[in-house]
Each structure stands twice: as C-alpha cells, then as structure tokens.
C-alpha cells in the first residue's frame, strides 16, 4: 500500500489584513499535488488573495503557506515564482509580437495551448481576449512550472472561448501539472475540478 502524496500547498491558519479589516481570517486548507483544485466562494471571500499568497505576490499577516512542506517565505522568491506560475483574470499582453511574449520555444508553446502558429508574428495586443488568455497560459508554461495558479481565467471570455480554455486547463491538469484555480462559477466545482476548497468570507469586526 503506497502512502498518500503530501499536499502541494498547505494554508495553515492564514490571516491577511486589508484596510477595512481581515480579508482572510484563520484560513486552513490543503491543495493536493495532483489534478485541478478549485477555490470557490462568494465575491469578497479572499480567493484571489489566497492565490496570490502561493507565489508571494502577497504575504500573510499571520499563519504560514507551505509549498511541499516548506514555508514559501523560506524559498528563493524568484525560483518560487518560476515554479508557481500565476495567470491573472485579465490577460496581459506585453509589447511586441506573440513570439516576443513567449520567448524560446514559442511555436511549441503555442501549439500546446491550441493556438495556430500563424499568430506568432502577430502583435500581442491585437489578439482576441480568448487568444490572449491562451497566450498568457503559454507564456506561463514556458517557465516549466510545477504549479499553475489561475485567477478566474475564463471570467473575461465569451462562451465559445470559455469552453476551449476550460478544456485546455483540464488537459494541463491531466498532464501532471498541479492546477489551482479561483472561480466564482459553481459549474467549475462540479464539472471541472478534482478537488474543491470552499472559501468563506472572513468575519468583519463590528465597528
């Protein structure tokens, strides 16, 4: 009998304070190393904040976030970010062509996210939102990450683009990447996720 794999991430009693009180208060959860984990919860529950703790765009005010058992603050932050690629809700195209955005291995990366090679020479800011989101995913994959952290990656997309990007994310998880995704779409929890982590809003301190 094989021992269960340790979690990829652990949130241990994590608190993040905002200007108007706690955004996250005493949150604990584990993100398994395999498959696609979805963080679901109402707007304002701190899901994006929890995601940003994974690659240290934010640090918690209390508690610990661990990657493979090590406090992320004890890791080299640049290496942590290479390993944990975060893709935001709104795709960001840097100046230049798609090839410029992707760097070395651009044709293979484009193929991996299901975009035609003809787009390589196109100005990145002339892509559709759906194409730009795929390009953002390709750019992140180019760093050879262990983890993809996705912040509502389909919320800015139309229905057709949405299903394509969802299928791509599912495929990346099946290929062995740890995928952590924030969503407010309950359908993602039922149809797409291997694991679901519920995020409840932090109780607000009474004025």
């Amino acid at each position: 009998m094989t021992a269960p794999r340790p979690p990829r991430f652990e949130y241990d009693d994590v608190t993040v304070l905002g200007d108007d009180g706690p955004i996250v208060a005493g949150f604990s959860a584990a993100v398994p190393a395999d498959g696609l984990t979805v963080l679901v919860g109402p707007s304002g529950a701190g899901k994006t904040t929890l995601l940003r703790l994974l690659n240290r765009l934010d640090d918690p005010d209390g508690g610990v976030v661990r990657l493979d058992g090590t406090d992320v603050r004890d890791l080299d932050v640049l290496e942590l970010r290479r390993r944990v690629q975060l893709v935001g809700q709104v795709p960001v195209a840097f100046p230049g062509t798609v090839a410029d955005n992707l760097g070395p291995g651009a044709p293979e990366l484009l193929e991996r996210v299901g975009l035609p090679a003809v787009l390589l020479a196109r100005d990145a800011d002339r892509l559709s939102v759906g194409e730009a989101q795929r390009m953002s995913l390709a750019r992140a994959l180019g760093r050879r990450p262990d983890v993809l952290a996705l912040d509502e990656p389909t919320s800015a997309l139309d229905t057709a683009s949405k299903s394509g990007v969802e299928a791509l994310i599912r495929r990346l998880a099946d290929e062995g990447l740890t995928v952590v995704m924030v969503t407010h779409d309950p359908r993602h929890a039922t149809d797409l996720a291997d694991h679901v982590v519920q995020v409840a809003p932090a109780p607000r301190t009474a004025p």
Binding site: N55, L57, L78, E79, R81, R82, Q85, L86, V87, G88, V92, F94, S136, R139, A140, R143
Partner: peptide
C-alpha cells in the same frame, strides 16, 4: 507589473 513579477 505583477504579470512580469509572476513570470519570475
């Protein structure tokens, strides 16, 4: 800026 930071 944060997209760039996220890329390492």
């Amino acid at each position: 800026v944060e997209a760039r930071l996220s890329l390492g």
